[in-house]
């Protein structure tokens, strides 16, 4: 006989579900019949470097900040769920000569990739389109498995990309992160910690950036007012298209800072190499 603390028991159960999700990802059917799925499960402090790097990138991007803030709050409250990392090498072609990648044959694709393999914002490329589709099916099976266990889970590009750059699933060209949990209700949608992260003005700006036409006044004059306040006709604000050197510089600096952190975590830089 034993009495279990519900919250602690749930935390342990989430790890079991994460394992089931890893199994489901590997069992997913593949259109190309040739995709090896790699998985890894991270828990507790092994997730902290990811949160740290995400927060750095988040200094200039709401996208990464959104996830960093949520993960940090979960870590602080001891509710950080296990994270299933799912990865695959999408660079090997299906050998169908289908043309979806932009090359006439898989041979031409291979010739190009042998010289031009590189990394984007979060993935290596070029990729075989069919491998990318099959990888999606595998990730979907992991999500579906979590859903069938009544566990809230959200597949995340941000977590996977940083985890890959930090050295997890090194053989993969794309990695996605699936936090299996947390327990509670809709915590990935209604993020408590996000409430006070952005000011009202910042939230309004993000919304306007997402759909400027919603707030746009008569555009026939060629310089439309963007209705950004209740008395929008007084001291009007306008929709402008312009280069933003300050933003670009801040972005470059943020990324440099994030990569420096990544190198430090990976042990490429010692503390003496780079001044804090």
């Amino acid at each position: 006989m034993a009495v279990y603390n519900g919250q602690k028991a749930v935390q342990g159960h989430l790890l079991d579900v994460a394992k089931a999700c890893a199994l489901a990802a590997g069992r997913a059917p593949a259109v190309s019949h040739r995709l090896e799925i790699m998985t890894e499960i991270l828990t507790d402090e092994d997730i902290h470097p990811i949160i740290d790097v995400l927060a750095t990138l988040g200094e200039n991007s709401a996208f990464q900040l959104h996830d960093a803030v949520a993960l940090k709050a979960l870590a602080d409250s001891g509710k950080l769920p296990p994270i299933l990392l799912i990865g695959a090498d999408l660079t090997k072609p299906a050998l169908w000569d289908c043309g979806a990648c932009g090359f006439k044959t898989c041979g031409e694709y291979l010739k190009y990739t042998s010289r031009n393999k590189g990394v984007g914002v979060g993935c290596y490329g070029p990729s075989c389109v069919w491998k990318a589709i099959d990888f999606g099916t595998a990730c979907d099976f992991a999500c579906a498995c979590a859903a069938q266990h009544r566990v809230e889970a959200r597949i995340m590009f941000s977590i996977g990309a940083i985890a890959m750059l930090l050295g997890h699933l090194d053989e993969a060209s794309m990695v996605l992160g699936l936090p299996v949990g947390p327990s509670g209700k809709n915590l990935w949608f209604d993020r408590e910690a996000w409430k006070d992260t952005l000011s009202f003005e910042q939230k309004m700006m993000t919304q306007m950036a997402g759909g400027p036409t919603l707030s746009m006044a008569f555009s026939g004059g060629g310089n439309p007012i963007l209705k950004s306040k209740p008395r929008w006709w007084e001291d009007p604000t306008f929709l402008k298209v312009e280069q933003d050197a300050t933003f670009v510089e801040k972005d470059v600096n943020c990324q440099a800072k994030a990569y420096e952190k990544i190198m430090r975590y990976r042990g490429v830089f010692g503390d003496e190499d780079i001044p804090e």
Binding site: C98, C101, G136, C139, D140
Partner: peptide, 22 residues
């Protein structure tokens, strides 16, 4: 000129994988 007219946005194609999976 090929079975599929490329190149396509691969991360959009990746989305199709989820639809197939579900």
């Amino acid at each position: 000129e090929t079975a599929i007219r490329g190149p396509v946005c691969v991360i959009r194609a990746h989305d199709l994988g989820y639809a197939i999976g579900s």
